[in-house]
């Protein structure tokens, strides 16, 4: 293809994005669009499956059978989200094995929030309420993203996430209506998860290198700071309703802007965790790599069995 032809395709492509047409896997797309989408969708898929770990830890310890079943169902949903997201990324010409390889070698990232430990039952509530709450804000914006398979996966995922968020809030509400000890457990969880949740929206706009291009491709509809503000505005009244306090002395409603003003995020902590030195980065990767390597013989067996079955079928037919 000549340079001129590529240029023409790019113009057509940009016009389609402008018109809000969906881009489908077989359509022509700029190489950078493909790469950016692989990066973002796989990162999202990795976040789902790494996210199974901190909550999965509580399945055997859930305080009641009802909570245990709900938690299992939730973690199972996350596995399902991982599946469709990997499938969406595969349509762009990368295999699941390659994506795992990138995760395991640290080349691909996942949401840093899952590098924090879930140490009490209230953390399961806080993760649902805050982490899923923040994820929804990011994801609702993606339901109308330009890449068709991703947008469609997001619609389905958002529905389930909003259920998880309500479930998490309900755990918090039960704790806050319980004994002093339970309420203290809820407050402690909010204290530990609040700031990491705000960090989920990524660096400040001026420090976010991909924002401009992603906005242009409608892979992002709002900037990191806009989404973070939306999350804070939505979540603070929910904390008030619970009767627990957000651990930010500078948090204050600004009647002029109609938004909450808030304190400075500890960006050193943010970068420390992103760079692999958070409380559980090592444990999360060990768990993922361990599952993958420990399961190699199982996957090999399944493959060998399928091949044998295929040969038997052919032998029978001939």
């Amino acid at each position: 293809m000549s340079e001129k032809e590529v240029k023409n395709l790019e113009v057509i492509f940009e016009a389609r994005i402008e018109r809000d047409d969906k881009i489908e896997p077989k359509d022509w797309m700029p190489e950078k669009y493909r790469k950016t989408h692989i990066r973002q969708i796989s990162q999202h898929a990795h976040s789902e499956i790494v996210g199974m770990l901190p909550e999965g830890n509580w399945i055997t310890r859930a305080p009641s059978l009802r909570r245990k079943a709900a938690l299992l169902a939730k973690v199972q949903d996350e596995g399902g989200h991982g599946l469709y997201l990997y499938a969406a990324a595969e349509t762009l010409g990368i295999s699941r094995e390659e994506m795992y390889e990138q995760l395991h070698t640290g080349k691909a990232k996942y949401s840093s929030i899952f590098n924090y430990p879930a140490i009490t039952w209230a953390d399961i509530g806080a993760i649902g309420w805050l982490v899923d709450g923040a994820a929804i804000i990011n994801q609702v914006a993606l339901c109308s993203t330009s890449f068709g398979p991703y947008a469609r996966a997001m619609v389905r995922i958002c529905k389930e996430e909003s259920f998880h968020q309500r479930q998490g809030y309900e755990i918090m509400l039960t704790l806050c209506r319980g004994t002093e000890e339970q309420k203290a457990m809820a407050q402690d969880a909010l204290n530990r998860w609040w700031w990491p949740s705000l960090m989920m929206f990524g660096p400040r706009d001026e420090d976010s290198p991909h924002t401009a291009q992603s906005m242009k491709w409608k892979l992002k509809r709002k900037t990191n700071d806009e989404l973070r503000q939306q999350f804070i505005d939505q979540t603070v009244p929910q904390a008030d309703l619970l009767g627990i306090s957000v651990p930010d002395p500078e948090l204050k409603f600004n009647s002029e802007t109609g938004h909450y003003d808030f304190g400075e995020i500890d960006w050193d902590e943010f970068w420390q965790v992103v760079k692999g030195h958070g409380p559980c980065n090592k444990e999360r990767m060990e768990a993922r790599v361990g599952a993958w390597e420990g399961g190699a013989w199982v996957r090999d067996a399944a493959m060998a069995y399928a091949e044998k079955q295929e040969k038997r079928k052919v032998a029978k037919a001939s």
Binding site: G56, G79, L83, Y86, V298, R299
Partner: peptide, 8 residues
């Protein structure tokens, strides 16, 4: 949960 040999 989260430690299986494959996602499926």
């Amino acid at each position: 949960c989260g430690h299986g040999p494959s996602l499926e």
